[in-house]
Write a protein that binds this DNA or RNA. Sequence first.
DNA 1: TCTCTCACTTC
DNA 2: TGAAGTGAGAG
Length: 745
Amino acid sequence: MSLSMRDPVIPGTSMAYHPFLPHRAPDFAMSAVLGHQPPFFPALTLPPNGAAALSLPGALAKPIMDQLVGAAETGIPFSSLGPQTHLRPLKTMEPEEEVEDDPKVHLEAKELWDQFHKRGTEMVITKSGRRMFPPFKVRCSGLDKKAKYILLMDIIAADDCRYKFHNSRWMVAGKADPEMPKRMYIHPDSPATGEQWMSKVVTFHKLKLTNNISDKHGFTLAFPSDQATWQGNYSFGTQTILNSMHKYQPRFHIVRANDILKLPYSTFRTYLFPETEFIAVTAYQNDKITQLKIDNNPFAKGFRDTGNGRREKRKQLTLQSMRVFDDRHKKENGTSDESSSEQASFSCFAQSSSPAVSTVGTSNLKDLCPSEGESDAEAESKEEHGPEACDAAKITTTTSEDPCRDKGSPAVKAHLFVAEPGGRPRDSGRLDKASPDSRHSPATISSSTRGLGAEERRSPGREGAAPSKAEEARALPGKEAFAPLTVQTDAAAAHLGQGPLPGLGFAPGLAGQQFFNGHPLFLHPGQFAMGGAFSSMAAGMGPLLATVSGASTGVSGLDSTAMASAAAAQGLSGASAATLPFHLQQHVLASQGLAMSPFGSLFPYPYTYMAAAAAASSAAASSSVHRHPFLNLNTMRPRLRYSPYSIPVPVPDSSSLLTTALPSMAAAPGPLDGKAAALAASPASVAVDSGSELNSRSSTLSSSSVSLSPKLCPEKEAATSELQNIQRLVSGLEAKPDRSRSASP
DNA sequence: TCTCTCACTTC
DNA sequence: TGAAGTGAGAG
């Protein structure tokens, strides 16, 4: 009954790229193709208590939530907006005419990031949430000044490994733990016009990292199930849940849409900056990183050597005691030991910036780090020889047993990839479609760092050229392998994933689960200006609001069965489950998903977007390749845009809502096919220059959605109209935006 | 490894 | 002024 089995636009595609799947970041080498990487797409998880959001600025973001709140306040329980409830799409939700834009993004404070990256960036995660430092900031250009955009950020696992800091370096310590529910963070100023975004540095410093799985700083919303391209739950939040000792890669997304509800139908342009990868820790492991943080983070000023902070005092005390000690033993030992516990630099990360891999992106730690079995001496030697030595070592150590290493270094992966001649149609499709678009290619992204942010400016490259006193005193001579970062060319630095992230095909069953386990969307608190509204909303939205308790709830609620079926439905046939990437398999096996029940066509949108989305997903399709999809990124077309929400997934039979909500879908296993032809010629499909196969699939997808088009539901239109009116009222009362906060250069 | 408290900082 | 963001360090 579901579209499932036959429908998948691209076999395995939606599964592989579904945003909510616990997918991993592609290797840097492939990151250039990030465009194919699906952003997690959202599943909104409403915070149990919206109060916290009330004080947030982000007036611009308010409209987004207002829309949701407005709907909730209309008194029309979303849960009642089933198939029988006819809503008319809000005018503002209608897709805008596509206007050419050529988004370019460049990472701010790149030098600072490079400094951290060379040493193996560590980000502390705490139960209450810790901010990232350096803060993730980007500058955008090439946007359509008039058009509105929603900017988002999420953090994905960089690989399938768990790490440990051993002998002054990060080493693979085994397979990664199950991924935490992911969320996507929406910049509080979203949506804003291109002009507004381009006029300032976009900063995501409010996003917090936590290891608290029961974190409540998120909320999930379920979207209508009758939307072929987007169904299920979307998680948003202000905190992202990470696993300690795991490596992550932040991603930045630009979505041309004027409200959050359009996200499912919009194209995601994804940008990945390898130098921003980091390992989550509950306590700093590498003293070098600690020192860098202290030297650059204003809030850690108290720990700096200079000044009269606690650190200074403590240091003085320590020195005093040490002097006494030294005086007592100096005569005996002859010299004092300068080498302290200060660890050597992080060769692994440093290597990732090595020239060898910079052209295609940085390598992963797993590729660079010596395996556990490697002798310490060897490791030391590498460090002493700097990056070059590391690179060499890296190349020669690709055969380790490490779970992560077997994936190979970028070079290795590339090799494997190439060696797979057309082995995978899906891959080829994506690759083919990934024709180079200089405009969007990483290379086109300006690598220059505009200058450090206020925080970074305080003491930016302090360590690069002149190590701090503390470092000098503590560092082991010759251990630091800070080779000059070779750079990340912009190309390497900003892997643009132009395309959007495929993946988001929210199929009811699949979608719901994926969202929970995968990547929910994070909404900035500012966007939750609904206070108690959320509660009522939650209560009234019913199915729409799948979860209110946070990601954990969502996760637990998922049904693995649904997942499996969804996977099957997704056309994994093209790629057997056995070929699924680690995270996928893991997900399939361990997922607990609850098929969120989508309900009627609450927000019927034109499906022209969907075709693109489908194409995107198809491009990203091959799950087996998702990790290195980018080898051919260079060939990707710039203009190629993918919608994150690729495939409409069949709704599990178990979902009563679904059945009612998706009459056409449920009834027809293959109604899509029939409509596919018609859609094939749609603008959307045309927009996607990917292979014909992809297009056709996309078309198919689109067709399905077409069949579900709201146009046919006058009642829904009326209901929507009412919601719209409420929204207008709410909007009219909006406070002036306070947008300076988050985007100050 | 992780959690919590502390002194210190920014805003 | 006080909320919130820091790493240190004890447990």
